[in-house]
C-alpha cells in the first residue's frame, strides 16, 4: 500500500502532463467537431442537391469508418503522401472529424425539430435566411442539441485513450507506466477515477449550458437559481407553485 502511494507521488507530475495532453485532445477535438457539425449539419439541409449530397456523404464517411482507422490514416498514411502532421494535430483532426460527423446529425435533427411556426414567423417578419438561422432558429435548436452533444463529448474523451498508439503520452500512457511500479488494480484505479472526474466535470458544464439555454427560452430556472442550495421551505414553496 505504502509503495503504491509513493510511486503515485513520484509519477504525479508525469500523470499531470498526460492529463494535459488528454484535455488538449478533448477540447481541441470538441471545438473542431462543433465547427464541422454546424457546417455539415446546415449543409445537409441545403436545397442544392449536390452540396447537400456532398455534406451527407462526408457525414456518412466519417461516421462509418471508425475513429481508430481515421487516426491511423492521418498519422501513418498521410506522411506517405508527403504530409507529415504533428501527432497532436492528427489526434485532434481524427477526433474532430469523427465526432463532428456524429454531431452534425444532431445539429440537423435539432434544427428540423424547431416548430414550423417559428420559421413562418420569420418569413412574416421578412427576415433574411442568415438572420432567421442565427437569431431565431439556431438559439432554439441549441437547447435541444446539448444533451446529445454531451454524450458525444464523453465519447470523445474516452476515445482519446488510444492516442499512445500515435506516440502521444496521454493520461492512459502514463498510468500504464505507473502500473510497472504499483499494483495493477491501483494504477488503473487511479486512471479510471481521473477519467471519471473529468467526464463528470464536463457533464456538469454541459448541464449548466443546457440550463442556461433553456432559461433563455423561458423554460426552467436560471443557472443562478439552479445552483442556489434550496432550503426545504423554498423547495416546498416552489413545488406548491408548480402544482
Amino acid at each position: 500500500m505504502e509503495s503504491n502511494f509513493e510511486a503515485l507521488a513520484e509519477a504525479w507530475p508525469r500523470i499531470l502532463d498526460g492529463l494535459w495532453i488528454t484535455l488538449q485532445l478533448t477540447l481541441g477535438g470538441a471545438l473542431l467537431a462543433m465547427v464541422i457539425a454546424v457546417v455539415l449539419g446546415l449543409g445537409s439541409r441545403l436545397h442544392n442537391i449536390v452540396l447537400r449530397g456532398l455534406c451527407r456523404a462526408i457525414m456518412e464517411f466519417f461516421r462509418g469508418t471508425s475513429l481508430v482507422v481515421q487516426l491511423f490514416f492521418f498519422f501513418f498514411v498521410l506522411p506517405q503522401l508527403g504530409l507529415a502532421l504533428p501527432a497532436m494535430v492528427c489526434g485532434i483532426l481524427g477526433l474532430g472529424l469523427n465526432y463532428g460527423a456524429y454531431a452534425a446529425e444532431v445539429v440537423r435533427g435539432s434544427i428540423n425539430s424547431v416548430p414550423t411556426g417559428q420559421w413562418e414567423a420569420t418569413t412574416a417578419l421578412s427576415m433574411s435566411k442568415s438572420q432567421q438561422m442565427i437569431r431565431v432558429i439556431f438559439p432554439q435548436a441549441w437547447a435541444l442539441m446539448i444533451p446529445s452533444l454531451t454524450n458525444y463529448l464523453i465519447h470523445m474523451l474516452k476515445g482519446t485513450a488510444i492516442v499512445s498508439f500515435i506516440t502521444l503520452a496521454d493520461l492512459t500512457y502514463h498510468t500504464e507506466q505507473l502500473r510497472e511500479q504499483t499494483d495493477t488494480f491501483f494504477a488503473y484505479g487511479v486512471s479510471l477515477v481521473i477519467y471519471f472526474v473529468i467526464a463528470y466535470i464536463l457533464t456538469l458544464i454541459m448541464n449548466a449550458l443546457e440550463v442556461r439555454a433553456k432559461h433563455r427560452l423561458g423554460r426552467g430556472e436560471s443557472l443562478r437559481e439552479a445552483l442556489t442550495p434550496k432550503t426545504p421551505e423554498t423547495a416546498a414553496a416552489e413545488g406548491g407553485r408548480k402544482a
Binding site: G117, E120, A121, A124, L125, M127, S128, V136, R216, L217
Partner: peptide, 28 residues
Amino acid sequence: RIGMVFQQFNLFPNMTVLENIIEAPVHV
C-alpha cells in the same frame, strides 16, 4: 409591407417580449 398574426402566436422563445418586437424593425 405585409404582416401576419398566427393562430399559435409563434413568438420567439429565445427573445424577450421587447426583443421579439424590435427584432425585425432593427434587422430588417
